[in-house]
Amino acid sequence: MGLNRWGFLAFLVGIFGLGVLLIPVADALPFLTRANLVVFALHAIAAMGLTLVMGFAGQVSLGHAAFYGVGAYATALLTAKLEWHPLLAMATGAVMAAILAALLGRVVFRLRGHFLAMATLAFGLVFYVVMRGWDSLTGGNQGTGGIPAFALGGLRLDSDTSMYLFLWGVLMVGIVAARNLIKSRPGRALVAVGASEVAAASVGIDVARAKMSVFALGAIYASVAGSLYAHYVTYVSPDSFGLLPSLRFLVISTVGGIDSVWGAPLGSAVVVLLTEGTREVVPKFVSGATGSYEIVAYGLALVLVLLFLPRGLAGGLALVVQRANEWLRGRERPTPAAVLEEVELR
């Protein structure tokens, strides 16, 4: 379904309004603060890169946090030590992440099966070890700090609210870029690759090249989010970019749903709600309950969501919308893809 210019504008205003609306929601909920919104948006941007890799190239990455780390460390070192402009540092990080991803992809996409998963796992771990071991550059385990707040002209992002609104803007750009990509010629090629590599190759799509570019694009999303993370926290240490953060991005993407651009924001919102919600609710039921109950609840919730909503929340939502439509209009919607667009429009 095509969108005319007005429709597109309405769409943009719609998402922007949604983002602003989340602020009073966070204020109203006792267990959320605006800082949670910042984390939500950061993770959503990074995870959206992973959603592209998984949904549109059918590949899984277990080292996504390394690209997040490339951006964060690039920003940390370039802005704090060399006093580069934040934008320039962010761009440098993104280019480095893209190059790393392309190199990794070049080597790995020759292989079949789960090898990308394994290779990205290894890549992520090596990155983690190097960030810990290369003291003179990265500050080693102690990390590196003194990163200035993000500033662009007169705009200085030094409060949670301004940071969040800016991040939401970045997220919007990310969503629009991803949507346009899917509808473009290379994007359709990617969807074909995701559906069936053999079929895609048979109609003349360079599968390896397509996968490599989507992998690099995913790395750029993560790297930009990482740069902004560094500006927000003003300090980076290797623990934020190890295996567990990689798994967290994986969880966000899959819980949200990997075949919709809305998957990552949805998944990120759910993970924030789950983490903070269990922190708030569980102690009310079990007195003296500490972190452990939250972790069990988090793990179980993850398993249950994936068991019953294999296409993630976005997929589940699309199904609900489809059913509602059928019921209301008394006719069948043609394809799930059309339904997805329907969701995006609303």
Partner: peptide, 28 residues
């Protein structure tokens, strides 16, 4: 077993969920 019709990718991530839950249980 209940998820055996899911994609292999989903099954791998399900085991991540199992791992998180088991670790939490052990902590508990």
């Amino acid at each position: 077993n209940p998820a055996r019709r899911h994609s292999p990718l989903m099954l791998i991530i399900l085991t991540v969920g199992v791992a998180i839950a088991l670790e939490g249980l052990a902590l508990l």
